[in-house]
Design a binder for these strands. Structure first.
Lengths: 234, 234
DNA sequence: ACCTGAACACCGTTCAAGT
DNA sequence: ACCTGAACACCGTTCAAGT
């Protein structure tokens, strides 16, 4: 009787490290990183929690594996970009950073996870090697390239700490005059800035206040321009 | 009979929000952020875990409070620095960032906690207002100052993601030739860089590889110089 | 080789109750 | 007003046992 193959809960495709990690990414994508528990992950795979331990050592190792999944996706996103590095290393690195950012926007939980990983995994080494290739094509010394890697930091991986959510209590119209007056007094520059910037660039997104993409690019270009200048001076 | 005041475990000084938050910082300083549990914190205060909930709403609120404690320490560290902003805004901001970094080095767990806070607390607003004051003294427009805040990001708060620990398995001398050969082939730029940089700056720290302080300052100056150039062009 | 059940040592948190 | 005990719903993880 081999009929149980299609009988629903019985004999599902066997677990594997790959399947566990993919499922983990999916769980985090759908429910956020706090949804990624060993027990919840197991359930999403229609398996008992303890079965996972046969394929990953523990939760830390699971997160390490998940981080590598993201880096690999990043390598794929970046693969089709490689063209004439020698002609425009700055543009190449810019494109690469923006590609990385696209990946991170698909997995909003990923930056936080990557930041907690400390080990240097093979795919990450590969990724950094690719960035160094761009620097060398541009003629930077290894010394400058090394500093540049640190300086660009998480930006070459596609994320910056976005600092703060849209607004603390943006729905409270109850900013009474007393509070406002005190803010004017104690935080004059902040208040003035908010007044000035808010009008600036029209109603492009919901709040029209801080456009992450714009700020990401601003910082990226600021560093790339600075590096170019340093490279020229070497 | 008021003698129980000195009788040891009885009638200790009563809890308060301040005492809870200070104790929380101390626990994290001594045992790392993972030591900061409601139960552990309570024990350090010689109190039951549930007593904490009278002074903080929950653990998130506790972390919010702890983050504010750090920002306030930061404001104190930065207070004695204020001098002639108009003459040298870049230097002023540089000093401020380095002061902030000193605070973060005293509380190594703090950057990770601050990064998870989303709300804009009063002390944080005050801190940002101070930075804006510097930008304005330097003649930057609010538009540029706003971009600058985003670009400098966590650097004005004294931290950068230090990326990676000293080494993944730095104690294994077992890097056999096969592995090394494969690395040379797949990661030529990384291998070459490591060879070149390692010798560079002598045996200053243990590994002599990545000096966080140096990299922090490199990135900081890179951005400040870039901003200065943009400000001059405005 | 791969998966599981029962159990352990931890979490944060509620709620009714004590002083 | 401030603190507590007992209990609940969750964690990650071990270990001996199943197939």
């Amino acid at each position: 009787m081999v009929a149980e193959t299609e009988a629903g809960s019985k004999s599902r495709t066997p677990l594997s490290r790959e399947r566990v990690l993919s499922a983990a990414v999916k769980v985090a994508d759908e429910g956020g990183i706090e949804a990624l528990t060993m027990r919840g992950l197991a359930e999403s795979l229609d398996v008992e929690a303890m079965s996972l331990y046969y394929h990953v050592a523990n939760k830390e190792a699971l997160l390490d594996g998940v981080a590598d999944m993201i880096i690999e996706e990043l390598l794929e996103e970046v693969a089709p970009l490689e063209t004439d590095l020698t002609r425009d290393w700055k543009g190449a690195l810019r494109e690469r950073s923006l590609a990385a950012r696209r990946v991170m926007l698909r997995h909003k939980w990923a930056p936080a996870v990557l930041e907690t990983r400390t080990r240097m995994s093979p795919p990450l080494l590969l990724y950094f090697n690719g960035i160094l290739e761009i620097f060398k094509a541009g003629g930077l010394s290894y010394d400058l390239a090394h500093h540049a890697l640190h300086a660009l930091g998480s930006r070459v991986l596609g994320f910056t700490q976005e600092m703060f959510d849209p607004a603390p209590g943006s729905d409270d119209e109850e900013v009474n005059d007393a509070v406002m007056a005190e803010m004017m007094e104690r935080l004059p520059y902040l208040v003035e800035m908010m007044g000035e910037i808010a009008h600036d660039d029209g109603p492009d997104d919901t709040i029209g206040w801080c456009d992450d993409q714009t700020e990401f690019i601003f910082a990226l270009d600021l560093m790339l321009d600075g590096l170019e200048r340093l490279a020229a001076a070497e």
